[in-house]
């Protein structure tokens, strides 16, 4: 059985940051990641700069990935899943299963869980037609699209869209789904994406459908006032009820309550982007860790030597995930030093 001082579960930005910080203290770290590459969810994010940087932190993720790849003394096990843990006299024994089915055990003095989140499964909101209507995409799909292609085109016919609707709070703040929490980052990332796309593709009309705009980061105020000043960006405090596909001209029709008059209106769009929220990563749900009422992991699992960090504890953006991972590093260092 292999052994290490600290086993970090999850190779996303939180896990990578924790590994890099612990390595500075001479602690031997093994990082285990289910995907075949490091970076987690944030590795696919695009740059959301307009004329200035819009502080989305996606570039920082790339830098951290490159940094950890250049460090030969951090072991990264890619393509391995953490499936279980049991205590032993001096620490913990983690069970790992590779994507090909091999099982290994690893002994560690401390374990850091940084397994992260999955974007909310948008097909669960059937009324929006995700997965059925081609031109309804999630914000995550849009990130990947912008990163790989550099510009937005409609998935169905590759034409440039002229009217885009962003629908917020998909999967969050939703009593019907049982998700009574705010995913905290969606308003900010959607607005940054609007600012970024608007800077390069000038003749698009954006409509931002929301409940309450949640701030994120220092100086969010400046981004918001900039966007409110743009003539082609509309803010509509109302969430649409249903999206219909109009096959004749391949457009999307949406019904919503117009906030000022209170009347039901219908409008037609070329492309709809669903700002999906966050849910705990499904592989973490099977592990024996206690969850809080919102379905994320509790920070205090009541076990010495088990630490948790990152978005698996609750919705976070990249900035806070990095801060949180750095914070947990000092606590792991403290714990190992006191043994």
């Amino acid at each position: 059985m292999t052994q290490t001082e600290v086993l970090i579960v999850g190779g996303g930005i939180a896990g990578i940051t924790c590994a890099l910080e612990l390595e500075n203290f001479g602690i031997s770290v093994t990082l285990v990641e289910k995907d075949e590459k490091l970076g987690g969810l944030a590795a696919d994010f695009c740059c959301k700069a307009s004329h200035v940087c819009n502080k989305c932190f996606a570039c920082v993720v790339d830098k951290k990935i490159k940094e950890i790849q250049n460090k030969s003394d951090i072991t990264s096990l890619l393509g391995w899943e953490f499936t279980g843990v049991r205590a032993n006299s001096a620490g913990w024994i983690g069970t790992l299963k590779s994507n090909k089915g091999h099982i290994e055990e690893i002994y560690a003095q401390a374990i850091v869980i940084a397994g992260g989140i999955d974007p909310f499964e948008a097909t669960l909101k059937g009324e929006y037609g995700y997965g059925i209507i081609k031109n309804v995409i999630t914000a995550r799909d849009l990130e990947v699209l912008l990163r790989e292609k550099g510009e937005i085109r409609r998935p169905s016919d590759q034409r440039y869209p002229q009217k885009i609707a962003f629908i917020q709070c998909v999967g969050s703040r939703d009593a019907e789904l049982g998700n009574l929490y705010c995913s905290e980052v969606c308003c900010a990332y959607a607005l940054r994406m609007i600012a970024s796309v608007n800077y390069r593709q000038r003749d698009i009309q954006f409509s931002f459908f929301y409940m309450d705009i949640q701030p994120a980061g220092a100086n969010f105020h400046e981004l918001l006032s900039r966007l409110r000043g743009e003539r082609n960006v509309r803010f509509i405090r109302s969430l649409p009820s249903k999206i219909y596909h109009q096959p004749l001209n391949d457009t999307l029709a949406m019904k919503f309550i117009e906030p000022l008059s209170g009347e039901i209106t219908e409008e037609v769009f070329d492309l709809v982007v669903l700002s999906v929220g966050m849910t705990l990563r499904k592989e973490l749900k099977d592990l024996p860790f206690t969850q809080n009422e919102d379905g994320f992991l509790r920070e205090d699992q009541g076990e010495r030597g088990i630490f948790l960090t990152g978005a698996c504890l609750g919705p976070k953006d990249i900035e806070r995930s990095i801060t949180h991972a750095k914070a947990v590093s000092s606590q792991v260092y403290d714990y190992l030093k006191s043994r």
Binding site: E21, F25, G26, T323, K326, A327, V328, S330, Y333
Partner: peptide, 17 residues
């Protein structure tokens, strides 16, 4: 609180070694 611990990490790693 998390920022305080993160700052502690930054400082302690400077002093390590």
């Amino acid at each position: 609180e998390k920022l305080a611990y993160a700052t502690a990490t930054e400082i302690l790693k400077l002093f390590y070694g």
